[in-house]
């Protein structure tokens, strides 16, 4: 008999091969590197150059999103940041939530929030049309 404690119920390792683990690990490295440059560029443009955030208004955004490049830049920043953060949070859930039911529930909530925000962000970036806005 062992002393009752946090580790009382040992669960066997899941040794079924998984492609997701390796690809998410690889994605974290690539996206992390890309995010360094994307975020630094974003910070420089939005917060430092030409008076920083004080000049940002509707006209600034509509001018910026008139072309494809900045829409693609912003979408890439959004997608990589959301997915990088989601995989990081998924790892934290795997490390800290032990019970399979709670772990599954936490992951479902996480994925729902991430894909909702990613979906809304994508919709705004793709469908934004300055000419159709009132005023």
């Amino acid at each position: 008999m062992s002393v009752a404690g946090a580790y009382d119920r040992h669960l066997r390792p899941d040794t079924r091969p998984s492609g997701f683990q390796v690809w998410s690990w690889f994605f974290m490295r690539i996206s992390g590197l890309a995010l360094v440059f994307l975020v630094l560029g974003h910070m420089l443009i939005m917060h430092v150059l030409d008076g920083g955030v004080d000049r940002i208004d509707y006209n600034f955004v509509s001018r910026r999103w008139a072309g494809f490049f900045w829409r693609a830049y912003d979408w890439l920043l959004l997608a990589l940041a959301m997915l990088h953060g989601a995989i990081g949070a998924r790892n934290a859930i795997a490390d800290h939530i032990r019970k399979p039911l709670w772990r599954g529930a936490a992951k479902t909530l996480l994925y729902s929030v991430v894909f909702f925000l990613l979906g809304v962000g994508t919709l705004v970036i793709v469908t934004f049309d300055a000419s159709r806005m009132p005023g």
């Binding site: 390792p13 040794t15 998984s18 790892n91 795997a94």
Partner: peptide, 14 residues
């Protein structure tokens, strides 16, 4: 390597 690619394998290492 297949076994260590699993959910509880090498990629749990932080």
């Amino acid at each position: 390597l297949e076994i260590l690619s699993s959910e509880d394998g090498a990629f749990r290492c932080r």
